[in-house]
Simulated scan of single mutants.
Amino acid sequence: MPWSKVPREDPWKAGPVRLPYTDRAEAGRVLARRLAPLGLEGAVVLALPRGGVPVGHEVARRLGGPLDVLVTRKIGYPPQPELGVGAIAEGGSPVFDRELLGRLGLDEDDLAPVVEAERAELVRRVRVYRGGRPLPETAGRAVVVVDDGLATGGTARAALRAVRGHRPSRLLLAVPVGAAETVRALEAEGWAERVVVPAAPWEFRAVGQWYRDFGQLADDDVIDWLARPGAGA
Score class of each variant (00 low, 15 high):
Val175Trp: 10
Gly165Arg: 15
Lys74Gly: 01
Ala89Pro: 05
Gly84Leu: 05
Lys74Gln: 07
Gly92Leu: 03
Pro37Val: 14
Arg170Lys: 11
Val17Glu: 12
Ala231Asp: 02
Ala233Cys: 01
Val196Ala: 15
Ala206Ser: 13
Leu135Glu: 10
Leu106Arg: 00
Gln209Trp: 06
Ala199Ile: 12
Phe214Pro: 12
Asp109Cys: 00
Arg170Asp: 09
Pro201His: 08
Ala200Gln: 14
Leu186Pro: 05
Arg194Ile: 02
Trp225Asn: 01
Leu122Asn: 10
Pro7His: 14
Val123Tyr: 02
Val183Asp: 04
Ala227Met: 04
Pro66Cys: 13
Asp219Ser: 06
Arg8Ala: 15
Tyr129His: 10
Gly149Gln: 05
Gly178Thr: 02
Gly178Glu: 07
Glu41Asn: 02
Phe214Asn: 14
Asp109Trp: 04
Gly56Trp: 00
Leu217Asp: 05
Ser4Cys: 01
Val71Asn: 05
Glu118Phe: 13
Gly153Ile: 02
Ala142Tyr: 10
Pro229Arg: 07
Ser4Tyr: 04
Glu121His: 04
Pro113His: 10
Ile223Trp: 05
Pro66Trp: 01
Pro168Asn: 05
Tyr129Gly: 08
Pro66Met: 03
Ala192His: 05
Gly208Cys: 02
Glu41Gly: 10
Val69Thr: 15
Leu217Met: 08
Pro20Met: 14
Asp148Lys: 08
Val145Ser: 09
Leu173Lys: 12
Trp3Leu: 07
Phe204Trp: 02
Glu41Phe: 00
Leu19Arg: 14
Asp23Ile: 07
Gly28Pro: 07
Val95Trp: 01
Gly230Met: 08
Gly165His: 11
Arg127Ser: 09
Pro66Arg: 06
Phe214Leu: 14
Gly105Trp: 13
Pro176Gln: 01
Arg98Pro: 01
Arg33Asn: 10
Ala174Ile: 07
Gln209Val: 03
Val44His: 03
Val55Tyr: 03
Val177Tyr: 12
Ile223Val: 15
Arg141Trp: 02
Val6His: 12
Gly28Asn: 01
Val163Cys: 03
Lys74Asp: 01
Leu19Trp: 04
Gly165Ala: 14
Gly64Ser: 03
Pro16Asn: 09
Phe214Ser: 13
Glu9Pro: 02
Leu217Trp: 06
Gly190Thr: 08
Thr155Ser: 14
Gly51Thr: 06
Gly102Cys: 11
Phe96Trp: 07
Ala156Asp: 04
Leu111Asn: 11
Asp220Arg: 15
Gly84Gln: 12
Pro201Leu: 05
Ser169Trp: 00
Glu187Val: 15
Ala227Pro: 08
Ser169Gly: 14
Glu82Gln: 07
Arg119Val: 15
Met1Lys: 12
Ala185His: 05
Arg29Pro: 00
Arg124Ile: 13
Val196Thr: 14
Tyr21Asp: 08
Ala218Asn: 06
Ile75Ala: 03
Arg167Lys: 13
Pro20Gly: 13
Ile75Val: 11
Gly39Cys: 12
Asp23Ala: 03
Asp213Thr: 13
Pro136His: 07
Trp202Tyr: 01
Ala151Cys: 01
Arg125Trp: 13
Ala43Gly: 11
Glu9Phe: 01
Val146Asp: 11
Leu83Tyr: 02
Gly86Phe: 08
